[in-house]
Simulated scan of single mutants.
Amino acid sequence: MIDSIKISRTNRSSDFEAIKQVYYQTWRYSYHGLVPELLLDQLDLKTTWNPKTRWNNTLIATDNQKTIGVCTFGPARRQKYYGFGEIYSFYVLPKFQHQGIGQKLFQSALDILSKDYDSLNLIVLKNNLSARAFFEMYGFQETADRIAEQTKFGLLHEIVYTKE
């Protein structure tokens, strides 16, 4: 199956509605029990995500031209990590998880970032142990940098990971 998966960069004419579906379905599945349910209940395909704004730094995984995964990246957004490259988001549809597709997609993003950056970072939910283990498999290390983001649905605790 993984041999049939194509990793490609998006462009202005990419199917951003399909990318929104990946975000929506993955959030609903993967974040159940990790974030407040009210947060998941208010997700809206029309307004929650706007992947078109990152068309030039997004990779998608496709299977028979169906978008099944997405990874966005670019320069670090937090001042503390100025000069780092950052993985902004990384999602694979639940039905396609644990088949090596995420590894292929993530490694492709790392390969692109490592051309321009010596150091990388990403932010992950503190209680998302499976994601943390995945990132550690790629050499990312937990930092002491913690983020507590107050949403109207509750507090989210995140950890910054880096890779030198």
Rank of each mutant, 00 (worst) to 15 (best):
S89M: 08
D145K: 07
M1K: 03
R12Y: 06
G83D: 02
L59A: 04
V22E: 04
S30A: 15
L122D: 02
F84G: 02
H32Q: 13
E149H: 11
L43F: 08
T26Y: 12
L40C: 00
F106T: 01
Y161E: 10
N64D: 15
R132W: 05
G69W: 11
F90R: 02
K80Q: 14
H157F: 07
F135D: 04
L156F: 08
L40R: 06
L39G: 00
T53F: 08
L110H: 02
Y138P: 02
V92L: 12
A109S: 08
M1N: 06
V92T: 10
P75I: 09
E142G: 03
R77T: 04
D111L: 13
T62P: 04
W49V: 10
Q107K: 12
D3I: 00
Y23W: 11
A133R: 14
T72R: 12
T48C: 07
Y91D: 03
A76C: 03
D63H: 15
Y31K: 01
V35C: 08
E142I: 09
A148G: 03
T67F: 09
T143K: 03
F134S: 01
K115I: 05
R28P: 01
C71S: 08
I60L: 13
G74L: 06
E149L: 12
T48Q: 08
L125K: 00
A109E: 00
T10L: 04
Y82M: 08
K52T: 13
N56G: 10
Y81A: 03
D41V: 02
S8M: 10
L120E: 01
P36E: 07
K104I: 05
K152T: 10
N121T: 12
N11P: 06
D116Y: 09
Q42H: 08
L40Y: 05
D3H: 09
Q79H: 11
C71I: 13
K20C: 06
H32G: 00
I60K: 10
C71H: 02
H157T: 11
D116C: 03
L43S: 03
M137Q: 15
Q21T: 13
K126F: 11
L40I: 07
M137D: 15
F16W: 10
Q141A: 10
H32K: 15
G100N: 07
I101S: 08
S8Q: 13
Q103H: 13
E17S: 11
Y82E: 11
S30N: 12
E136W: 04
T47R: 06
A148F: 12
D41C: 04
S4V: 04
Q107G: 03
K20Y: 03
Y31L: 08
G102N: 01
L40F: 09
K95C: 09
L156Q: 04
V160M: 01
Y117E: 02
F73M: 10
K80H: 10
F90V: 00
D41R: 06
A148W: 06
D118M: 07
A61M: 10
